[in-house]
């Protein structure tokens, strides 16, 4: 009903979401600073970053809640500034705050969103029942939502974003504040959704991005500071390796010798941490043995996204 006679501006078949110098300023704060993203169709893309990095502001602009200060974005070719109602028809949004009508039951909540999206009562009913079964809320379908646990509300929140079977799904911090079990349940469900539709997910949990995302954009201070698959991001870290050795009887002599060979050597309470571009595992262990140290365990640490984040931004990702 809202075509306005405007056809999609650009239709790059490969991409579902594209941003062009997308910027939002609040007073003196540049919340989102000219980001350029190209999210492929069918991809699950995670925006990872600490609180206040600009992830939610980005999502809010993409789902036409906030007007960009400058720049724009397209969702399946529709411009968020010029065709907001076209965009709203094809997206599903699960906001960070769990927003549900507390005195309505899940069926009624789903019905509301479904009907607003133009589904007829029968379609809504069928889809609601499917979703409730998959999400494990089938038995609570007629209870008022205000009696639900946080995890159940979250699941309903996601279902409400899915009721009209949108091509694009925005999940803003889908597991925020949930216990590990509830998080796991939501992850499992999100995994099932992968591939069917394009999903943009924001999170400040590294393991969530690592587990779910096809590609990750690390956001900090309104900018996308690194972009790639989880492995790509970690490989970019491989220019520096860390080896951790637990041993008894580490002598000053062997510490001195290590320091002469490797860039960084730290020793505390029987733990030796060696960092350098290249590490020779065998050589290090042999050296320690021959110095009389008893090595209990030694390993080369796999870089985590946290390391990537620390490396890129100089700060740790707070959970």
């Amino acid at each position: 009903m809202t075509s306005n006679g405007i056809e999609p501006v650009k239709m790059d078949d490969e991409f579902a979401i594209q941003t062009f110098d997308l910027t939002r300023v609040f007073g003196n704060l540049v919340a989102v600073d000219g980001i350029e993203l190209n999210i492929k169709k069918g991809e699950l893309f995670a925006l990872l970053g600490p609180n206040g990095a600009g992830k939610t502001t980005t999502i809010n602009m993409l789902c036409c809640l906030l007007k960009p200060t400058s720049g724009t974005a397209t969702i399946l070719g529709y411009d968020i500034n010029r065709q907001p109602f076209r965009v709203k028809e094809i997206i599903g949004v699960s906001p960070q705050e769990t927003v549900i009508s507390e005195r309505l039951n899940p069926l009624e909540n789903l019905n509301l969103i479904g009907r607003i999206h133009g589904l007829d009562a029968r379609e809504v009913k069928i889809r609601s029942q499917q979703l409730l079964e998959i999400m494990g809320l089938g038995e609570r379908a007629k209870d008022q939502v205000r009696k639900f646990s946080g995890g159940m509300k979250r699941r309903l929140n996601i279902m409400m974003a899915l009721i009209h079977n949108p091509k694009i799904l925005f999940l803003d911090e889908p597991t925020l504040g949930l216990d590990p079990q509830a998080r796991r349940a939501i992850w499992d469900y999100i995994v099932q959704l992968k591939g069917e539709r394009t999903i943009l997910l924001t999170t400040h949990y590294m393991d969530e991005a690592d587990f779910l995302a096809d590609r990750i954009g690390i956001m900090d201070n309104g900018k996308v500071v690194a972009l790639g698959t989880s492995t790509e991001l970690k490989i970019s870290m491989l220019e520096k390796h860390t080896m951790i050795i637990y041993a008894w009887n580490i002598t000053q002599k062997v510490i001195k010798e290590m320091r002469s060979k490797y860039a960084e050597v730290e020793v505390t309470d029987g733990t030796m941490i060696i960092t350098d571009k290249k590490l020779d595992f065998k050589e290090i262990v042999d050296l320690l043995h021959s110095s009389g140290a008893v090595v209990r365990s030694a390993y080369i640490k796999e870089p985590t996204l946290d390391d990537v984040f620390l490396h890129i931004t100089g700060t740790e990702l707070r959970e």
């Binding site: 809640l65 109602f85 709203k88 997206i91 906001p95 705050e97 927003v99 969103i113 999206h117 133009g118």
Partner: peptide
Amino acid sequence: EKGFLSRLLTTPARPLD
């Protein structure tokens, strides 16, 4: 206050609705 309005503003509902 609770964000329900914002939530619904991401749907095709119009202000007049």
